[in-house]
Amino acid sequence: MSEILFIGLSLSSILLLIALGLSITYGAMGVINMAHGELVMIGAYTAVLAGIYLGLNLFFALPLAFLMAGVVGLLIERLVIRRLYGRIIDTLLATWGVAILLQQAIRLEFGLTFFGIHIEGLGPGLQNMAVPGFLTQPFDLWGLTIQPYRSFIIVLTLILTGVTWFLMYRTSIGMQVRAIMRNPQMAAACGIDVRRVSMLTFAYGSGLAGVAGVLLAGFKTVQPDMGASVVVDGFLVVVVGGVGSLFGTLASAGILGQINGSIAVLTNDILARAVVFGVVILLILWKPRGLFSMRSR
């Protein structure tokens, strides 16, 4: 039983990292970023490439992926999203286009396949990232079998959630983000540079997606379209948790990850997804604005 909970918890953790970024960007800017899954994918490929070319293991890949995904996110914001603020349907389509573009860039190795050049680690095939040996050996602790890699995922997520909470609620930039989430015009009238703060927020959320990608690469194969399913899960978490609520995202990632994990272990993955979708539908019917929506009047 405890093992099932544990698997659920580690799934929740990755969901949470993905959803945190989405929740912040959607909450702060009203942007639905369909390319968020591709930022996860970029994180995963960063880990793969760092392993092949730089000989760096998971631990070094994490900050690298954070930076890489963050920079790509920053570029997406500056080149595409910035021009489309306030036009939610347009951003949805445009970021979807960016998502396809990024997928194909990896699949075609940035176009080099046309010239017969192959970069190892890219391309349409499956890749994987080696997890350091000491993270793969389960050990016993007080009669429980501990999976070190899954524990690592949980601990890292807790730390990053803590950092995010601190940034949002205890720093000046976080206060600016929260003010923009609630009233962007008043925030600007109070001297907050909405564009700059939004850009940084977007980059940070993207960076978290990159980290999630590295963690995901540890137990799933890495492939160009891995982001597509991930972004759907991320949005489910955001919608159920309530837009803009850090705590809601946390709770909802916990619930959905746990349901997914438990049912997947007891039966199979496909049934687990069906149940998750069912639960999400019921929750949204019961609370259309999410479990912990931001109060406004």
Binding site: C190, G191, R295, S296
Partner: peptide
């Protein structure tokens, strides 16, 4: 007035500080 309802009075006032 456009007060932010879930900010404390302190935070609502300090919002103005970004322009000082």
């Amino acid at each position: 007035r456009h007060i932010i309802p879930d900010f404390t009075i302190r935070d609502n006032i300090l919002m103005g500080r970004f322009a000082a």
